[in-house]
């Protein structure tokens, strides 16, 4: 196997064909405690980041929204309220365990949101179908990010928006504290709360391997999006990128 067919899985190098399987195992392992861990790890801030993403989206009543790697369905729930009964939100995830959590939560909330298991690199939707596509905390787990971004651009209508909410490069003076938190505290919390230190070790490593704000911006431009801009949230712990299809 050549190095061209290898990719990173956290700090490890694995065969491209194995990455999706390994990521799948991680999320299958954390699915049942995903929300609890998110709340504990981000001190509840992930809810604010997601709400901000919805505010920035400009989605209005009647719009069609695609939530990629939507997992437990936090964003789909917020978008479903925005688009109303005339609009449509589709929740997708490659991982069946995560999708099941999201689907059940939608049903419990009385929302009609179709849940679809699919690979973001091969989206089963026609060209120019959605007004807004969002991927939150999912892009870094994708094997071919460029392919995934190109697919997201394909399914967007002209004038549609792609939003990418993802961990990013933290403000330099905070990087030491953030490292301690990520590599010491995070696995410890994973061990104590979810009995799964390894998965949370992967989470910390995958964040470090993910492109920084400017690199991701360029990747979105390369995927055919224009007017790409980003917001640093919580000193760059998370960045929200927004680009338009023109």
């Amino acid at each position: 196997m050549t190095s061209e067919h290898n990719t990173h899985f956290g700090f490890k190098t694995v065969a491209e064909a194995d990455k999706a399987k390994k990521v799948g195992e991680v999320f299958h392992s954390v699915a049942s405690k995903y929300d609890l861990m998110n709340d504990v790890m981000s001190a509840g801030m992930h809810r604010g980041w997601k709400r901000f993403a919805v505010e920035i989206s400009g989605v209005r009543s009647g719009d069609k929204v695609l939530d990629i790697a939507g997992g437990s369905g936090d964003l789909s729930k917020l978008f479903a309220k925005k688009v109303g009964t005339e609009g449509q939100v589709i929740l997708t995830d490659i991982n069946a365990s995560m999708l099941a959590v999201g689907r059940d939560r939608m049903l419990d909330a009385g929302l009609q949101v179709p849940a679809l298991q699919c690979d973001a690199e091969k989206l089963p939707f026609p060209d120019q179908y959605f007004d807004c596509v969002i991927v939150a905390f999912g892009l870094r787990n994708m094997t071919h990010k460029d392919l995934a971004l190109a697919e997201m651009q394909r399914v967007l209508k002209v004038g549609g928006r792609l939003l990418v909410l993802e961990f990013s490069k933290v403000w330099q003076p905070l990087s030491k504290i953030y490292d301690v938190y990520s590599f010491k505290l995070l696995p410890l919390m994973g061990k104590l709360l979810a009995h799964d230190a390894e998965s949370y070790q992967y989470l910390a490593e995958s964040i470090r391997m993910h492109p920084d704000q400017e690199t991701l911006k360029q990747m979105m431009v390369d995927a055919g999006l224009s007017k790409v801009d980003y917001y640093n949230l919580s000193a760059g712990v998370v960045a929200l990128h927004k680009g338009y299809k023109t």
Partner: peptide, 14 residues
């Protein structure tokens, strides 16, 4: 100015 006529602060590189 957003697509729904809303207003938001611009990002870092606008």
């Amino acid at each position: 100015i957003l697509e729904d006529g809303g207003l938001v602060m611009a990002g870092e590189t606008n």
